[in-house]
């Protein structure tokens, strides 16, 4: 199958004053196109650091990272922004929506930076909102929406540019069980029907069970990698 992500001996060390804190201590794994991966681990295990590097938000201290065969090490700031814009969608635990903008405008945001003209931008954003079941709430501002709705706006924003990779960092961390399930159903549908590769961080086992593959992080290393067969 087609390999989307390949990392070899990935190392990340944070410099906190005099002290060096190792967050990733040699991660080697690959993720194929169309996979739904759940990354689990205790806090401080390096899973968020790993995801930030996958999403080109942060850079590793050492090791190799290939995304669609492109070596992340040689990319400029601008090129990394370009990849974040066109190839990757982010869903965060805290939603990270712009509170002064309506749901529709929040979803339009990535399209502004890929220079999609105004009318087409709105059309695409509307379609993305409908896809997560928020077509009728597009003019509400984030503070007028429930947590689940806000997260769905964030998902629509992540999807609007039709990325090849969806990264979700504790997407249900701020939501109740029922809403969490709704969000996970959306993820499942995106993965199965649209074939989007999803890498999701969570520490809740029943959320992780939505993933077909579970990777366990411990002290900056992969402690387990298990693919469930259907």
């Amino acid at each position: 199958m087609d390999i989307l992500i390949e990392v070899k001996e990935l190392v990340k060390i944070y410099q906190l004053g005099e002290i060096q804190v190792p967050a990733l201590q040699g991660i080697t794994l690959s993720i194929e196109r169309g996979e739904f991966v759940a990354i689990m681990g205790a806090s401080g295990s390096g899973k968020s650091t790993f995801m930030n590097i996958l999403g080109f938000l942060d850079q590793p201290t050492g090791g190799l990272y290939l995304f669609e065969g492109i070596n992340g090490e040689n990319l400029s700031r601008e090129e990394r922004a370009e990849i974040r814009n066109r190839k990757i969608g982010f869903v965060f635990q805290g939603f990270n929506l712009l509170s002064k903008y309506s749901a529709l405008e929040n979803v339009e945001l990535p399209l502004i930076y890929s220079k999609v003209p105004g009318s087409r931008r709105r059309e695409m954003a509307r379609r993305a909102l409908s896809a997560v079941g928020l077509g009728d709430r597009s003019h509400h501002h984030p503070l007028q929406l429930s947590g689940g709705e806000q997260q769905r706006v964030a998902i629509a924003r992540a999807l609007v540019n039709q990325p090849s990779l969806l990264l979700a960092d504790e997407p249900t961390g701020n939501l109740d069980t029922k809403t969490s399930k709704e969000i996970m159903e959306i993820f499942k549908r995106l993965n199965e029907e649209m074939g989007i590769t999803i890498v999701m961080i969570t520490h809740e086992p029943d959320i992780a069970s939505y993933g077909k593959r579970k990777i366990l992080f411990k002290d900056g290393k992969v402690a387990g990698d298990h693919t469930s067969r259907l």
């Binding site: 922004a81 974040r84 066109r86 712009l98």
Partner: peptide, 16 residues
């Protein structure tokens, strides 16, 4: 700063 971070995460370049 957070807004800038969000914009960068969805693909805003430095010059944007």
């Amino acid at each position: 700063t957070r807004e800038i971070g969000i914009r960068m995460a969805v693909g805003a370049k430095g010059k944007d």
